[in-house]
Nucleic acid binder design. Structure first.
Length: 504
RNA sequence: GGCCCCGUCGUCUAGCUUGGUCCAGGACGCCAGGUUCUCAUCCUGGUAACAGGGGUUCAAAUCCCCUCGGGGUCACCA
């Protein structure tokens, strides 16, 4: 039988990398004939926001985690937003009440709070005492007529054991006395998480629930509901959590926790996916570089670890460099341009094409600096290609290439290679200037060929190349002089060499 | 605290099912060296772990027990 899985986030905040990992596991678990459903769990109207639903959908798309059914996309089991499924919930709540699997509880929150407090002090599990459990029909009617508010609780039989199969942990069991009569709905039409979840998983014909370990204690509660309603059993897989370096839950205190933040910082989606997949899963051999497609082929649940994994940003950065090296330069160029624009280094030559945003691709167009120097898209393409293995995230492109866009400052000390005299440095720069001005056909090959030719005339090529590179970049560390000269262009290169000579 | 889960280098992990090939392999990080005009890349080498204690066994990272440690969860949130 084909599998059906679902990823069911709540739109109550920016899409978390932990959620992304769960979504990824669901995505990878389903093979071609299976189905992956996106369900938005927005039963909590107070906390759910539309912008967060959008953020979930955008993030999934960015990561490349395509799903088969979901809000906007549709499917045979919709609607896929819990806020639009109240008729279904109402039906089942009624059924649960009528069949005596659930009951109305009129206890006040204050009273319950006190009760829990007392139990906790005594070292007992805080569970509901069940005072409203056996209210007579007349009593209920009377309270209802008085307009007393109530919640709906599940009638949990004591002394039973709920067992379920977990693909990662094997068989897990819970005893029913520890849960008490838990609340399943705020009223006849407002289900709480466990109820809505159990109903939707059934209604959407879900075969496997793959979620975070934080849900493991919800599982018996959901199973009890399923049993009362005579739903088919589901297979579970509870993945370990992602931890902060101090082994605590990955929270905002740690730094970036949302997918959007990593996108903005300039991580490639394929790198984030690769990294997240390796958290708690391995192929069983030494391979670490994976594309989504490869992961989909390789992934099996039985190779998932049980222990939580610390989110190691350095490793993420390393994985990102791996994917950066593999990435298509033109795509990278489009991705890097927004950072250069944001920094104020570049602006579109054509004002109508202004739209760029960090993490997204800029239009393929020509750009210019504030002082009017042009950077055609093809030159930018070469610039990026030359820096592809010099950055760990896209955002670093600005600091690594700043000298292309800003005026540079040099002094003799910078221009000096080993113990060269000012005269020797000046001579090198003169020669370089001459070589460049004699180049008719300004191409990458031509520029490097001619420059190299001259450099080889020296016993120590550094005597020629270092002053040249330093004059062009104003930096001790940068890309090579051939590349820089070519990208800067004949005019700008000559002018920088001329400026450099002034300090000698 | 109750319940549930987990425990191999600092971190991510392989090995554990079917004890021996493991004085534990790979990767990130870090350190050293090489290539190079610089930096980065790349290459070579090094660093560092079976939580502890008992068993079982000719033999245990691998099986059993206990202890310790970590995490999750105990809402009219999801």
């Amino acid at each position: 039988m084909n599998k059906r899985v679902r990823f069911a986030p709540s739109p109550t905040g920016l899409f978390h990398v932990g959620s992304a990992r769960i979504a990824l596991a669901n995505y990878l678990f389903t093979k071609k004939e299976d189905s992956f459903v996106l369900r938005i769990e927005d039963t909590d109207q107070e906390r759910s926001e539309e912008k967060y639903e959008k953020n979930i959908i955008d993030s999934l798309k960015w990561l490349g985690l395509d799903y088969d059914e979901g809000p906007q996309k549709g499917g045979d089991y919709g609607p896929y937003r819990q806020s639009e499924r109240s008729d279904t919930y109402k039906r089942y709540i009624k059924k649960l009440l009528v069949e005596d699997h659930a009951y109305r509880c009129f206890c006040s929150q204050k009273k319950l709070e006190k009760e829990r407090e007392r139990q906790r002090k005594k070292g007992e599990a805080p569970t509901y005492s069940g005072v409203c459990r056996d209210l007579g029909e007349d009593e209920i009617k009377e309270k209802l007529e008085k307009g007393k508010s109530f919640v709906i609780r599940m009638k949990v039989k004591e002394g039973e054991v709920v067992k379920f199969k977990d693909l990662i942990r094997g068989e897990v069991s819970f005893e029913t006395e520890i849960m008490g009569d838990y609340v399943i709905a705020k009223d006849e039409k407002s289900p709480l998480y466990n109820l809505a979840c159990a109903i939707d998983d059934y209604e959407m014909n879900i075969s496997h629930v793959i979620r975070g370990e934080d849900h493991i204690s919800n599982t018996p509660k959901q199973i009890l509901i399923q049993k009362a309603l005579k739903f088919d059993p589901i297979t579970y897989a509870h993945l370990p959590l992602i931890l902060a370096p101090d082994k605590s839950k990955l929270s905002k205190r740690f730094g970036a926790v949302s997918v959007s933040e990593y996108k903005k910082e300039g991580f490639l989606p394929e790198a984030l996916v690769n990294f997240l997949a390796l958290l708690g899963w391995s192929p069983g051999d030494d391979r670490e570089f994976f594309t989504l497609t490869e992961l989909k082929k390789e992934f099996t649940m039985d190779r998932c670890k049980k222990a939580g994994a610390v989110f190691n940003k350095e490793k993420l950065e390393y994985i990102n460099t791996l994917h950066l090296k593999e990435a298509d330069p033109e795509r990278l160029t489009k991705l890097c341009i927004p950072y250069l624009v944001e920094e104020g280094y570049l602006k579109p030559a054509d004002d109508r094409k202004k739209k760029t945003s960090l993490g997204n691709e800029a239009p393929k167009a020509n750009y210019e600096t504030d002082d009017g120097r042009e950077f055609s898209f093809s030159v930018l393409n070469i610039l990026i290609k030359d820096h592809q293995d010099r950055i760990t995230t896209l955002s670093e492109i600005t600091e690594v290439t700043d000298y292309f866009f800003k005026p540079v400052n040099v002094d003799f000390k910078l221009l000096q290679w080993k113990d060269m005299s000012p005269e020797e440095v000046a001579d090198s720069i003169d020669k370089a200037k001459k070589v460049l001005s004699n180049i008719e056909n300004w191409t990458q090959d031509e520029v490097s060929e001619k420059l190299l030719e001259k450099a080889n005339e020296y016993d120590d090529r550094g005597k020629f190349l270092w002053p040249l590179r330093a004059a062009l970049t104003g930096k001790e560390a940068s890309a090579g002089p051939f590349e820089v000269a070519y990208i800067l262009g004949k005019k700008e290169s000559s002018s920088r060499l001329k400026e450099a000579k002034k300090v000698l």
